[in-house]
Nucleic acid binder design. Structure first.
Lengths: 128, 128, 128, 128
DNA sequence: GTGGTCTAGACCACA
DNA sequence: GTGGTCTAGACCACA
């Protein structure tokens, strides 16, 4: 399901949080679908179950997942989280557009570059 | 030429730097065109010449203007500064596109939003 | 701590910058040790605090010192500045050696002169 | 005798001056030895005789060579020029030593580096 | 006239 | 107390 990057300097639990929340944000993990159990994910990644437990705990606190005792962890309804993130993103887009206009970059160039940046991302995504 | 905002909490000299560098970045003040003299700008803004002097000093240090003693201050060739700013901007565009793709926002929506943000900026610019 | 030279035609703030940066380059003022406060140094040198402020401002910009509001100014970690200066010095040494070789000065003479120059410096340093 | 570097951006006559004065400074061209005639050097380098003429004119003005009508150009007694150049060189060595001492570079390191710079020059000279 | 340096002295936020 | 900002006003060298 997910892969750890040993060159990544961040703590492992943070990498897990990022990878899982990304899968949920992308809609690959959908609402109410079950996450792997703490023990099985720990075994898959060859890490300590406590590390997975910590990642799950923080994901629950942030509203990404919910846990039911003796049943497991499941993807929560993350539409509010998605909307917040989208708002933040468009807010930054706005300041970017302002700076671009300030630099005298015409609209066509701005959009052309935006498109190219998006395409680059897709290629990158395929590799992952 | 420029207006100060009394509600702005930043130091006056910083406001002057921002306004003038913006005019140069936008191409409104072009290469080698003369800036108002330290004294005349101070009189226009009803502030102390020392404050203008400080702004000009820092603008010169950053490469925006050049000053010739007993002649005045002039807009420098800011193409390298513009290029640096463009690079920074596109770098941020790239991370933005990545996050958008991560959120499952399709390319059309991303570009549509980028275009709308750019248009909003233009209206804002007209008011200034 | 430092002395001003009234015969020196350079601006006072520049003299202060030179003297202090020299003390730091020599390792006499070490990392994180406090500099005299703007007001106390101004009083010591019988000059205006603004002049000291300007010197400190430029020293901070160049990476020699860091200032904490309401606490004081302190010597920064200047190892990168030292390395840059050493690189510049050895670069000039190289062109000097080339010119010496071009003049037919043998290596022994070149080194003998280098040593004598270094010794003269030491005597000068003792007087300071 | 000498080679021009087409990548060198300086005017050709300046390159000729540099090469010839260098040969004289190095003692490869000795006092009273004849220089190639303007026409023959121009032919050798496939350039216009006027260009060589200009180089010789300036070399004579600087005291490097003397010309006798209908006989040719000859290397002058350049000991005074050598001495001046040596003085300049040692003057710069002195300021270099001061800066090195200021940086806390010990005498051994300074001399070691001076020696290495000299050696590098020799290798470079061999290639020329 | 111009930019640049400096003094004298005020006020601010902060520790 | 500290650094930082700002005003008012002086003087300098230079074109």
């Amino acid at each position: 399901m997910i892969l750890l990057d040993s060159r990544d300097r961040r703590p492992i639990y943070e990498q897990i949080i990022d990878k899982l929340s990304d899968l949920m944000m992308r809609g690959i993990l959908t609402k109410d679908s079950p996450l792997p159990s703490v023990r099985s994910l720990a075994a898959d990644l060859s890490i300590n179950p406590n590390t997975v437990q910590r990642a799950y705990m923080e994901l629950e606190r942030s509203g990404y997942i919910y846990s039911i005792k003796a049943k497991g962890s499941f993807v929560a309804d993350i539409t509010p989280l998605k909307e917040k993130e989208e708002d933040r993103l468009y807010e930054e887009m706005r300041t970017l557009a302002e700076r671009a206009a300030g630099l005298g970059i015409p609209k066509e160039d701005f959009l052309e570059k935006a498109g190219r940046c998006y395409d680059e991302t897709e290629k990158k995504g395929e590799r992952v």
